[in-house]
């Protein structure tokens, strides 16, 4: 029989499964003995198939049957307590559960790091109810004052941006006269821009007053609370 490499590859599984006719089997064996490539392929695939078949079946998790029965028949009264507990214990050992726990732990650690008091600085007197109440009250007012200051600062920034945005573009060759001076900004509503104490800049009069007012308020809060 005239056998070639393509035949070997095509009929290899039949050869390994013992499904080849004796004449074909002999022809393939003879070809594999002469052809180095085919000989290696037959040996390699044959060894792999033997290895696969010798592998032990994968063992299912011990709680799998109980879970399947719970899912189909429902919880059974006859199910032993230790089996139920074992199921739970093995279930929480799963990587996805561990990942969830780790995520929650990291979030908690961040929150505690930010919000919790520094335990190293805590003294016995700090644990007295009056002191605890006072510290809580102080912390609350400080937080409120910081919030107010933050909002006021934001307002200042916004107002500066608004003023700059409302400024007209400077002309290329300014003509003399107060109307054509690009550096002069007329308030849009003169009734709202009356001079106030602390007004050092006519352009940003409102801003300065607002800033100094907010700073004074925040500083007063902070001083009175500390």
């Amino acid at each position: 029989m005239d056998w070639n490499c393509a035949f070997t590859e095509e009929r290899l599984s039949d050869f390994l499964d013992g499904a080849l006719a004796p004449a074909e089997r002999a022809a393939l064996s003879a070809h594999a003995a002469q052809c180095e490539g085919c000989g290696q392929t037959v040996a390699r695939v044959g060894a792999m198939v033997r290895g696969l078949r010798e592998l032990a079946p994968v063992e299912e998790p011990p709680y799998l049957v109980a879970k399947i029965l719970r899912g189909t028949l429902g919880a059974r009264a006859s199910e032993r307590t230790w089996e139920r507990w074992l199921g739970w214990l093995l279930e929480i050992g799963q990587p996805r559960f561990a990942m969830g726990v780790a995520t929650v732990a990291v979030c908690l650690a961040i929150v505690l790091h930010v919000a919790a008091p520094r335990m190293k600085n805590v003294k016995a007197a700090d644990l007295h109810p009056v002191n605890v109440l006072r510290a809580t009250n102080r912390q609350a007012h400080l937080t409120y004052a910081r919030g107010v200051k933050f909002v006021n600062d934001l307002r200042v920034v916004y107002e500066i941006q608004s003023r700059f945005a409302s400024q007209p573009e400077p002309a290329a060759s300014p003509a003399p006269g107060p109307e054509s001076n690009p550096t002069t900004v007329e308030p849009r509503d003169r009734s709202q821009s009356r001079p106030r104490p602390g007004n050092r800049d006519s352009r940003f009069g409102d801003l300065v007053v607002t800033t100094s007012h907010s700073e004074r308020m925040s500083n007063t809060w902070t001083r009175s609370l500390s």
Binding site: P57, E60, P61, L64, V65, I68, L69, T72, L73
Partner: peptide, 18 residues
Amino acid sequence: DGPAWEELVRRHARRVYG
């Protein structure tokens, strides 16, 4: 028959899981 189903599951769980 619940026990019959349980027997079927026990008999084939390893094969299906594998």
